[in-house]
Design a protein around this nucleic acid. Sequence first.
DNA 1: TCTTGACTTGGATTGTGTCCATCGTAGGAT
DNA 2: ATCCTACGATGGACACAATCCAAGTCAAGA
Lengths: 144, 144
Amino acid sequence: MSDLLERLRGRGWRMTSQRRVVAQVLDGDHVHLTADEVHARAALLLPEISRATVYNTLGELVSLGEVIEVATDGRARRYDPNAHHPHHHLVCSTCGTVRDVHPTRDPLTDLPVEERFGFTVAAAEVTYRGLCPSCTRAPAQAPA
Amino acid sequence: MSDLLERLRGRGWRMTSQRRVVAQVLDGDHVHLTADEVHARAALLLPEISRATVYNTLGELVSLGEVIEVATDGRARRYDPNAHHPHHHLVCSTCGTVRDVHPTRDPLTDLPVEERFGFTVAAAEVTYRGLCPSCTRAPAQAPA
DNA sequence: TCTTGACTTGGATTGTGTCCATCGTAGGAT
DNA sequence: ATCCTACGATGGACACAATCCAAGTCAAGA
Ligand SMILES: [Mn+2]
Ligand SMILES: [Mn+2]
Ligand SMILES: [Zn+2]
Ligand SMILES: [Zn+2]
């Protein structure tokens, strides 16, 4: 994923230590961190990085399409660097853990025109809800 | 929907004017109000009702399964009394308008066992995103 | 009518995210 | 190598949704 840094440079990004560190934290797919989690991990590498910069950088990555914002009811938004492989999410109702899943069918094809009400429909996201293995056994546990 | 009041009485609810008014505001399906919108409309009927009571009552209705909470990223949660007819949502990315939609297929059937990772999957919600007719014409408009 | 615990209230508090004035610096120009 | 400057970083104030709490109120059974 270090080609992310290349792509960003190509887009005219000024390469700062803060941005490098945020990109590094998001490295490795299948991660779904909140902004504060990103900030905490980034601060291990660059202690004085500010919350505002993490928010700024995440927002920029989102509008560049490099990161996906995942809204999980009530809780803080999660940021998903796995933006180049379309997928959906399976969320544990108890602890909030998020997993990537790949249904066999695109729900967009199942929304008939007469159910679109004149909207220009751009995308469909599916959120599967349930209990993760450990919360199935022992309800009300700490997040993974 | 006034049988809602019956059902609640049956569940041992103390019937207060505040709860009656909140139920009345949620009457009529196909409504997706925020807690503050519910509060505003309730206050027309019962001027001194407090925000805290609206939140309490909505929360109780949600855990009784009489109302569905719809999370719309960034903005305030919306409360949906159409809880007895399964459906999904079409959200305008610009103004936040929400419409009920009924896809022809349940996405749960399209998540194979090997994509469930040991979760006990209970439900699937689809959020279709796009632009409503008026935002398609004139971007950045006031909510409906 | 009396009693009591469930309910309501407003204000304080928390959690998440945005805004902004100021300072610092990456990277092109020389 | 040094200089310039526009872009980026900073932290503290701010905004907003939602929750918490201690004190007062009242629905409904006895
Ligand atoms: Mn993901
Ligand atoms: Mn609905
Ligand atoms: Zn769990
Ligand atoms: Zn719209």
